[in-house]
Each structure stands twice: as C-alpha cells, then as structure tokens.
C-alpha cells in the first residue's frame, strides 16, 4: 500500500502543479494583474513559422491539385463542351436559316397576294450541272398547274421561264441563259428592245443603235411583247453603255434578281398580259 502511494505521488504532484499553473495563468489574465502578452507572443511566434510552412505546403498541394490533378477531366469536359458548342452552333444556324426562309416566303406570299394572277410557290432543288446552259430545277410540276413558258419570278424581278415540265418537277431557263430572250421597255424613256442572256451573270441588249438615248442607270421592265413574260416585271438596270460593233451600242445590264442566292420562286400558272402596277416586282 505504501508503495502504491509512493508510485502515485509523482502523477498527483505533476497534475496538481499543471492545474495550479493553468489556474494561476487564467487568474492573472482575468484580474489583469500581469501582462501575459509576452508569453502569448512567444508562443505565437514559435508556432507561426511552422504554421506558415504548413500553410505554404498545403497551398502548394492545392496548386498542384488545381493545376494538374484537378485538370485530369478537363480534356474530356472540353471535348463534351466543344461537341455541345458545335451542336448549338448548328442549331443556331438552322434557326437563322429558318428565319430567313420565313422572311423570303413571306415576301413571296405578299407578291402572290398582290393580284398578279394564279401563282405557285416552288423551291429550287437543283441547278444545271453543266456550264452550257443556265437552268434551275424546281419542285413543282404540271400537277400544280405549271406549264411550259410559265413565268418564274421573285420579289426582285424576273427569274426566267419554264422550259420543261414534269409531273412533279420543272426546269426553268434563267433570263441570263444564252438561249434566253426577253422583250423589254426602258422605264423612263419607254423605248422597246430585246434583252439576251450571254451565259454569264449579266444581260445584253440587241440592236441598240447609236442614236438611242439609253444610259447607265436606266431601269428595264418586261414589255410583254414576247407573249411569254407579262408586261411590267422588273428585269434589271443598265450598268454600262459602250460603242459596239458597227453602228450599234454594247449595253450591259445587271439583272434585278441575284441568281446565286435563289431558293424559292413564284411560278405564274395563269398567263396575264400585264402585271398590275404595285404588284410587279
């Protein structure tokens, strides 16, 4: 028993000393008799550098994690985002396309409703694969009332005429085709003439003699004398007048219609001799 007490003494003494030390420490801080800031600052300063080292270490690990290990999935995420971006871009383009198409169709509908006889809206589904002629294929044929020589127009002006009619499809000869000829009248001077295609994107006038007062900027419309195109449809604008062979002038005309941007057209299924003023493109 004595031995037990003797062996337990150090722990009781140590515990007592430690608890008294802490109690005194607390007491002097509470009563503010002594300034313990020196002890506290010494303890902080002794641990501060270690804290700094550990903090820097953790920050380094964080940087490595964020800069390298955390980027493991970035490549995969990037690919997913890229494909998502592509999908959205295609979707956006499709929507924009639909918007433009809607605007075009609306314009054609306006034209259709403007009192120029029966018309059929058609979509261009093909272009002449050869370079010898300038023709287009449209997705409407005889079943929709399209006939040979039906005039094909857009809001901008004359596109051409139907030269072959199938049951479901038709072929349109553009006015710029080298086989095409359209009777015209100069809007301002009312002079008549014939416009011919030359296979390029422009038109030419035939037999314009030197004393003809046609000039650059003159607007040309269909004359209706060719018995194909109704009178009053826009054909184009004179872009140059130069001396030609013999006593004739070489006159170049830019068509009203931009043939490279055609997508939908209007086919006139009922022949009218003249398009009413205001309805004509």
């Amino acid at each position: 028993m004595r031995t037990d007490i003797a062996s337990k003494k150090p722990i009781w003494i140590t515990l007592a000393i430690a608890l008294v030390f802490h109690t005194l420490l607390l007491s002097i801080q509470t009563s503010r008799r002594f300034d313990t800031s020196i002890l506290r600052s010494w303890l902080i300063d002794s641990q501060g550098p270690l804290e700094k080292i550990v903090d820097v270490g953790i920050e380094g690990i964080e940087n490595i994690w964020n800069g390298y290990i955390g980027l493991i999935h970035v490549r995969r995420d990037n690919q997913i985002l890229l494909s998502e971006n592509d999908r959205l871009r295609i979707e956006l383009e499709r929507r924009e396309e639909e918007g433009l198409e809607l605007a075009r169709l609306r314009q054609l509908l306006d034209l259709q409703a403007s009192g120029m006889g029966k018309t059929v809206m058609a979509r261009i589904i093909g272009k002449d694969p050869s370079t010898s002629s300038q023709t287009l294929t449209i997705d409407k044929g005889s079943h929709r009332g399209i006939q040979r020589d039906s005039t094909v127009i857009t809001r901008d002006g004359v596109v051409g005429r139907v030269i072959f009619v199938g049951k479901l499809f038709s072929v349109v000869q553009l006015i710029v085709d080298s086989q095409s000829a359209v009777g015209f009248v100069v809007k301002s001077s009312r002079r008549l003439g014939i416009l011919k295609g030359n296979g390029s994107s422009e038109l030419e006038m035939e037999y314009i003699d030197d004393d003809n007062d046609i000039k650059q900027g003159d607007e040309l419309i269909t004359s209706g004398q060719d018995q194909i195109y109704p009178k009053g449809l826009s054909l184009g604008v004179v872009i140059s007048v130069k001396p030609g062979s013999g006593s004739f002038k070489a006159v170049r005309i830019r068509p009203s219609v931009n043939f490279s941007h055609l997508e939908e057209v209007l086919c006139m299924t009922e022949h009218v001799s003249e398009v009413p003023v205001g309805a004509a493109p």
Binding site: F21, L24, L26, R40, L43
Partner: peptide
Amino acid sequence: IGLMQDSLSGVPLGTNGFVKTL
C-alpha cells in the same frame, strides 16, 4: 498542447491547457 492551442486561439491562456491537462 493545451497552451499551444490557447496561444493560437482567442481564449485566455490556460483554458485549453487546464482542460487538456485534466
């Protein structure tokens, strides 16, 4: 360890020291 903890915290020195000792 209690004293060290106290020094880095806002409590009076000896609070954690006393408790951790016990």
